[in-house]
Simulated scan of single mutants.
Amino acid sequence: MPLTDAAIKKPKPVDKPTKLADGGGLYLLLNPNGSRWWRFDYRFDGKRKTLSMGVYPDTSLKLAREKRDDARRLLAAGTDPGAQRRSNKAAGIDRAANSFEVVAREWLELKRREWTKLQFEKERDRLQNHAFPRIGHLAIADLGVTEIRPLLEHLVKRSHIEQAHRLRHHPSCLKSLFTEG
């Protein structure tokens, strides 16, 4: 019988982990410490596997069921949902490691030896004050004219025309990020 919100809230703390089944492999694991974890059991390549779907009440019954259905669609397509999640997480970590801010800071460190202290500080401050807050979190692979133009327009509207010009025509490897061609 499928779970309801009332059935989820009703049980008291337990002495050992207890499962409340919802159906289709989804269940709520009640722990002795009072936490309630959504889990999805499935088989892939003949092996039993479990996938975490979140913590109740942060993950509602409806959302847990949607996540289960998504995982079941992946299984139907021949994909292990656990492996897919790990792959997505690794890709996210890789994208974060290649964010505009990370790459720009590495570039600044390379240029530090070529520039005077004052020049380095100007370039660093320009990026920190104007570019990083708006595009620093974006992956380098995702940056293009559609991301750069609003940054430059914002600076012009705030009467930072010289900063916009300098960012657009930034020297070395970053120049290609700020030009359309």
Rank of each mutant, 00 (worst) to 15 (best):
N129W: 11
F120W: 13
L138C: 05
E109K: 12
R158S: 08
T179S: 11
R112F: 07
L127G: 01
L177A: 03
E162P: 00
H160G: 04
L152G: 02
H170S: 10
K175D: 05
A164M: 04
S176N: 10
L118W: 13
L127K: 01
W107Y: 09
K117Y: 14
H165R: 14
N129C: 12
H137P: 00
E147W: 04
S176M: 11
R134F: 01
D142E: 12
R134C: 04
E101W: 06
H137N: 06
V102M: 06
H169K: 07
L118P: 06
V145H: 13
K122V: 14
V156Q: 11
H165W: 12
Q119G: 06
V156Y: 10
P150E: 03
E121H: 14
A104C: 04
E123A: 15
E153T: 06
R124P: 12
V103D: 03
K117C: 10
K111W: 10
K157H: 13
T146M: 13
Q163T: 11
R149W: 06
V103E: 02
K117M: 12
A141W: 05
F132D: 00
L143T: 00
W115Y: 11
A139W: 00
L174A: 02
R168H: 09
I161T: 10
L177P: 00
V145A: 08
E153F: 09
A141V: 14
K175E: 09
E106V: 03
H165A: 08
H160K: 10
E121V: 07
L177Y: 09
Q128L: 15
R124G: 11
L108N: 06
I148F: 05
I135L: 03
E123G: 12
L118M: 12
E153H: 09
F178C: 05
V103N: 00
W115N: 07
H154C: 11
E162H: 07
G144W: 02
E109T: 08
F178L: 00
G144P: 02
E121G: 07
E123F: 13
Q119E: 15
E123Y: 13
W107K: 01
A104K: 00
H165Y: 14
W115S: 05
K175T: 10
H165E: 10
F132M: 00
R168A: 14
R158M: 05
T179R: 14
H137F: 12
L174I: 07
N129T: 13
E123P: 06
T179G: 09
P133A: 06
H165G: 07
L118E: 15
Q128G: 08
Q128P: 09
L152P: 02
R134Y: 00
H130V: 07
R113P: 13
R112A: 12
A141I: 13
T146C: 06
E106K: 08
L152R: 01
L151Y: 02
T116N: 13
A139D: 04
R134H: 05
L127I: 08
A141P: 09
K111P: 00
E162M: 05
V156G: 03
Q163L: 06
Q128I: 11
R158E: 10
R149N: 08
Q128K: 14
F178W: 07
K122N: 15
V145I: 11
E109S: 08
W115A: 04
A104L: 04
W107L: 05
